[in-house]
Design a protein around this nucleic acid. Structure first.
Lengths: 236, 236
DNA sequence: AACCGGAATTTTGAATGCAAAATCGCCCTG
DNA sequence: CAGGGCGATTTTGCATTCAAAATTCCGGTT
């Protein structure tokens, strides 16, 4: 059942990426990234080219090109003449990632409050209500997906493509940790309460309040993530 | 003479990148990136694989792998079956880049003030004095290089690798605009005065002051950059 | 059982080849 | 002169091949 939930979560995100792409290269990058995150591979594990070629039904050339991009994204590490490994997940990375994301959240808060269109507010409200529905049904996978969409929508409302791109990169990195901790990272009731506050500030178009709410939300998520990862080291 | 200055500026940055690398792939990425920034190519210009292979003396395979990475960095745009083009430089990108960089500068200020070691302070002071020397001699190329090193050193003092990486990506993007505007973007006296204030706040280890100084410095650089780019549209 | 050395096998980095798509150049027509 | 069509040429995406590096396997020695 858990494995099933994972598949659902990513499958809903993955098609979006594919429809935006169009080339084998970009499809391959996304598919391999998906496999790296959800495929049950262990950090540090070797990623043989031949296996991937067989799995995805492509020759080595486009496969290697995709691996190069994934390496520059930090998902894998290339070792000369020894192949690629899945980049190790270092719990020490959590704090720096969330610290940086906190700075981006603040900027999102300061700018989205003024720049969001009414249409965007409506969309975010719709997502917010969907989050509420998912909370009632207790569907973690759906909540996670909608949460991703909600925050992505907020970043888009800033109208700063650079910010959106940087934010998404961080979301992808956090995604891998989420899969690592699985259900032990579940704070959806608390999260939704924070989303309520975020929506209030957004509707009121109060930049400082919105920024503070987003930063606090980010910090709490960081704390929960660190606790969940710390629990992985404890005996079952 | 201008062409000579450009070469000097990048050559001093480029060797550092190469020594950190070690593989043909990484060397090629750096070399092509350098060519894209300083090679006098026009935005939107086609980048034929065959030319690059000849120029760098490699076969198409590693060349294509490098191009894929540069595309994911946003330096080039890949068009299916039509080859790569140098990504257009849109003046509208300046504000978003600097807006995001402003958020990072703030975080750098808030964290470096507490986290910088004495050795790092010493190094930054040395760079600061070198900047002063360069100001006296009016060497723009050297000032630009040392300025890059100074800000990089500040980012390193935060001890946040994610932040350092994101900051460097933005620096690289800004670099391209710098080459576009060339000498019309010259504010080294004003810049140095701002660096003085930055050093004072850093030595005093006052996070809020340092953050404010870095943000102001960033904003003024943004303003100057936008003015310089706007002048490019004016009749010579 | 553990360790070492050498041979065999596998994997990787890069070159080359092939077919499809795009571009270029030339000629004809209005 | 401008535009369109067609053939020739070039460029691109990807498969395949080759040589070097790394890993694995096997046998012998302690």
């Amino acid at each position: 059942m858990e494995a099933q939930d994972k598949t659902e979560t990513r499958s809903e995100t993955q098609p979006e990426t594919q429809t935006e792409a169009g080339t084998l290269h970009q499809t391959l990058v996304a598919n391999i990234r998906n496999l790296l995150i959800e495929g049950g591979l262990a950090a540090g594990q070797r990623i043989p080219e031949a296996e991937l070629c067989q799995r995805f039904g492509v020759s080595r050339t486009p496969l290697r090109e995709a691996l190069k991009v994934l390496a520059s994204e930090g998902f894998i590490q290339l070792r000369p003449n020894r192949g690629a490994i899945l980049a190790p997940l270092d719990p020490g990375q959590i704090a720096p990632i969330f610290e940086l994301k906190g700075a981006l959240e603040r900027l999102i808060g300061l700018t989205a409050a003024d720049r969001a269109t009414e249409a965007e507010l409506t969309r975010l409200s719709t997502l917010h209500h969907a989050l509420n529905d998912t909370l009632a049904s207790g569907n973690l996978a759906s909540y996670t997906q909608l949460n991703y969409d909600f925050h992505k929508g907020l970043a888009e409302a800033t109208r700063n493509a650079e910010l959106m791109q940087s934010y998404d990169i961080l979301q992808q990195k956090i995604w891998r940790f989420r899969f690592l901790v699985n259900d032990s990272f579940s704070r959806i009731e608390e999260s939704f309460a924070e989303h309520e506050q975020i929506m209030i500030a957004l509707r009121a178009r109060t930049p400082l309040d919105l920024a503070a709410r987003l930063e606090a939300h980010n910090q709490k998520t960081c704390d929960a993530m660190q606790r969940a990862v710390a629990q992985l080291d404890q005996p079952g």
